[in-house]
């Protein structure tokens, strides 16, 4: 589905990513974990053209997307729920969901059953149903995260990039978010999940990459990495 080869990118003169190679197969959840500042978010930003990559190839279903602007990548069916949620605060929950389906509603992507999908999304995130006409800016952090995820799903995407869905959330909400991710998984979604909560991410993922200082240092099936002591050390500096 999504293949990243020898990706290099960064901000200004600083090259943050050094030869990143990642593959996300169809119907699988792949997670990218690592401590803060390892370059996880930068990787996602480089994939969707929010920053320009300096070298390397990125393909979606075999189609190169490296130098495309973000909006065209989205039209090809890649949904990116960015770090920090980034909901449209002065629009309602419903409007936000509608914008998630923007390419479908404007003819750049098969329309499908838009109304049905809205209902489905509301079912998946019952909290949003109650707040359908509320402005997104007035939602709590957890609700905004739900909205950001629902908005990404509304694209009817080939693949979802989900960036730190747990950021700044209370543990109970983190739990809820991960429950929803596993429900999405059972419906056969393809996802690249960036998380700093390694254990939670590994529980839900099929395959994992561990980043450190802009490089992939370990990769393997999620089950294998779950018991790898190197991970705990990388996070807590404990021995």
């Amino acid at each position: 589905m999504l293949a990243i080869k020898d990706l290099q990118a960064g901000y200004g003169k600083v090259n943050v990513l050094k030869n990143i190679n990642i593959e996300v197969p169809k119907n699988k959840i792949v997670t990218l974990i690592g401590a803060n500042g390892a370059g996880k978010t930068t990787t996602l930003r480089a994939i969707t053209g929010m920053i320009k990559s300096t070298s390397g190839h990125i393909t979606l279903n075999g189609k190169p997307i490296s130098q495309m602007p973000s909006y065209r990548i989205a039209c090809l069916g890649l949904a990116h729920s960015p770090e920090g949620r980034r909901v449209f605060s002065s629009l309602t929950v419903f409007d936000n969901l509608q914008l998630g389906a923007f390419p479908r509603l404007t003819g750049s992507r098969a329309k499908g059953d838009f109304k049905g999908d809205i209902e489905k999304a509301m079912e998946l995130f019952p909290r949003l149903k109650e707040r359908r006409n509320q402005l997104a800016g007035t939602l709590s952090g957890g609700e905004q995260q739900m909205l950001a995820m629902a908005r990404a799903i509304m694209l009817n995407p080939e693949i979802i990039l989900l960036d730190e869905p747990s950021m700044g959330l209370a543990p109970i909400l983190v739990e809820e978010v991960f429950k929803i991710i596993s429900r999405l998984k059972s419906s056969g979604i393809t996802m690249l999940l960036v998380e700093q909560f390694a254990v939670a991410a590994l529980n839900v993922a099929d395959y994992a990459y561990v980043m450190e200082n802009g490089k992939i240092v370990v990769e393997g099936t999620a089950d294998k990495l779950k018991n790898d002591p190197a991970i705990k050390a990388a996070y807590l500096g404990a021995h």
Binding site: S70, A74, P82, R86, F88, L99
Partner: peptide
């Protein structure tokens, strides 16, 4: 930026 990600 987020709007770009929505395909706008």
């Amino acid at each position: 930026d987020a709007s770009g990600l929505m395909g706008i």
